[in-house]
Design a protein around this nucleic acid. Structure first.
Length: 161
DNA sequence: GCCAACGTTGGC
DNA sequence: GCCAACGTTGGC
């Protein structure tokens, strides 16, 4: 199976790219996704070794900060069972979890964060879901071509395996 | 802070 | 199963 490419959004006030870099083993579990379409990506399609663009939403600047990698495939998001957690879901049952998370690991920080404006004005990126009208998905697939173009804009010298 | 767009909920 | 109401997202 060929490697897939993704983009995840995070509000840096909640969890920033820097927070990921400072996490233990530069790895975190991607909890709190409560959208079925995004859940299906987490559960069915994100595989170990897939590469992920890390985007800051509701932020200044609005930009892709760098790249991380899926290091653990979909497993139950424990926060759905925790009444004290903001993402608690009273309808979720441990024997049949509704919500799924993966683990991602920091891989590369861009020299130049790739700003939303730059993405919008790049003709090669005009079909990115990120800039589609009304898009609210927090996890979305990115094509190989789009991924490579973003890399080129962010860290021209970076060679990816 | 505004508001358009979208997903979810719940009454019928 | 429809759809109005509501809550959330996220750029501006």
């Amino acid at each position: 199976m060929a490697r897939k490419y993704w983009l995840v959004k995070s509000e840096p006030d909640e969890f920033s790219f820097d927070d990921l870099k400072k996490s233990k083993n530069k790895t975190t579990y991607w909890d709190g996704v409560r959208n079925y379409q995004a859940r299906n990506f987490l559960r069915d399609e994100m595989k170990k070794g897939d590469l992920v663009l890390f985007y800051h939403s509701n932020a200044d600047p609005l930009a892709v900060l760098g790249v991380c990698e899926v290091v653990k495939e979909g497993y139950p998001d424990h926060t759905q069972f925790d009444p004290d957690n903001d993402h608690y879901d009273p309808k979720a049952a441990p024997e049949n979890p509704t919500w799924i998370m993966v683990d991602i690991k920091f891989k590369q920080e861009f020299k130049n964060p790739v700003k939303l404006d730059a993405i919008k004005s790049n003709a090669k990126l005009k079909n990115m879901k990120l800039i589609a009208r009304g898009n609210r998905l927090s996890i979305m697939p990115v094509t190989k071509e789009e991924f490579e173009e973003i890399i080129k804009m962010g860290s021209p010298s970076l060679a990816l395996p």
